[in-house]
Write a protein that binds this DNA or RNA. Sequence first.
DNA 1: ACTGGCTCCTGAGGGC
DNA 2: TGCCCTCAGGAGCCAG
Length: 271
Amino acid sequence: MPELPEVETTCRGLRPRVVDRLIAAVHVREHRLRWPVPRHLGRTIRGTRIRAVDRRAKYLLLGTDVGTLILHLGMSGSLHVVAADSPAGKYDHFEIVFSDGNCLRLRDPRRFGCVLWTTKDPASHPLLSALGPEPLSGALTGGYLYARSRGRRVSVKSFIMNSDIVTGIGNIYANEALFTAGIHPQRRAGQVSLQRYTRLADSIKATLEQAIRAGGTTLRDFSSEDGKPGYFQLQLRVYGREGALCPRCQGGIRRRMVAQRSSYFCPQCQR
DNA sequence: ACTGGCTCCTGAGGGC
DNA sequence: TGCCCTCAGGAGCCAG
């Protein structure tokens, strides 16, 4: 489900509702997420407070007085702040109960998400330490993508979805950004010019910024922490639109599997 | 060092 | 109604 805009939307929504709240209890109904939820978590963080909510790539970092929770929403995860006495659903695997009567609940039907713990700088955690730059930072430039891609034969779409290269870009926004930049998703990463990578870097930033402004994309079930859906699906130009007309040339949008993921593109506009 | 393919898991939707 | 298939917003891991 969530790519960078959805995680950022969740992060911003969460912040005012959990920062400085006292942790009264932790409930783990299902330990079997992508990695087991640490057994000691309740004992460790009870009685402390959430001090910060940050995002790195698609990870959410909840800083407490004694360490940092590292959360990932996987494909189907979402976080909501609800009344602590509201009934938990079948897929509400994890929750932090606060002394203000609310709780932060993780729902994740597919269980590809995770809840991990570190007492060190989270940036040095093995899952985070090798990540590439944030796409909305000044570090993502055409020159950077060009330099990293020389000699690489993977498709440019796989290349920009690789979090070692640049973080946060999933299948929806990869398709959208490549359309905007006029680059065919199957073109080899090493065969894209500097000029075109400059356009692509701009397209990635613009696409993600627009999506954040719209509150993310809701295809099936994404909703922000307060339960509101995103609206960027109304602005999607190619994703999920096989057979529809290209908004630029009125040709037909095609769908093809690229590296096991559905890719949508206009064969006229994208080369 | 790269690359493609597989994997974890549940649910929705289509064809028969 | 049920069965079987494919696909779904991620990304770590493995063999070649």
